[in-house]
């Protein structure tokens, strides 16, 4: 009886952990897709594929700022090996990782404070935000496929 209880407890713990692990990984991916999608919205207007829409630019920048604020919450201790594309270098340089995420949020907020009035101003927005993406992915993302 005791054994059955112990096994059940263990199974529940393991299940709980794996659900937690999946959720953590999913949140990482969700936030990155959120920022990428937002960049796509701005990028399509910058390239002239879509008409300029200041409200959409504002929503996109807000989404990017949110990503910057929340992203490091999903890189706690014990979440190093979830099988996603997070590099072990993140945990070796956690302060830098957090600082970069905070900078992404700050750069997005700086652009929110001076929203461009037309499509011509979007190049500067892309230039301000884009290097944050590649700079962080240079050090902290591992391509697995």
């Amino acid at each position: 009886m005791k054994l059955r209880l112990a096994v059940t407890a263990l199974a529940l713990t393991a299940f709980g952990f794996s659900a937690f692990a999946n959720e953590t990984s999913e949140m990482r991916e969700k936030l990155m897709k959120q920022a990428g999608g937002a960049m796509g919205t701005i990028g399509a207007m910058a390239k002239g594929e879509k008409p300029f829409d200041q409200d959409a630019v504002k929503t996109a920048l807000e989404a990017i700022a949110e990503t910057g604020h929340k992203f490091p919450d999903y890189f706690g201790e014990g979440t190093e090996n979830l099988g996603d594309e997070a590099s072990p270098a993140i945990w070796e340089n956690m302060d830098d990782f957090k600082a970069r995420s905070a900078k992404l949020a700050a750069d997005a907020e700086a652009q929110l404070a001076q929203l461009p009035a037309d499509a011509a101003g979007l190049g500067a927005v892309m230039g301000a935000i884009g290097p944050n993406c590649s700079g962080c992915h240079e050090k902290y993302r591992l391509k697995k496929q």
Binding site: M32, G36, G37, M39, G40, G43, K47, M126, G130, C133, S134, G135, H137, E138, R141, L142, K143
Partner: peptide, 23 residues
């Protein structure tokens, strides 16, 4: 060509790893 210029993939993921310097 756009990826090499901007560092963004068609779905606006960004360049990463050693390719950042190359881009």
């Amino acid at each position: 060509a756009y990826y090499l210029e901007s560092g963004f993939t068609p779905d606006f993921d960004s360049v990463g790893g050693s390719m950042v310097e190359v881009q």
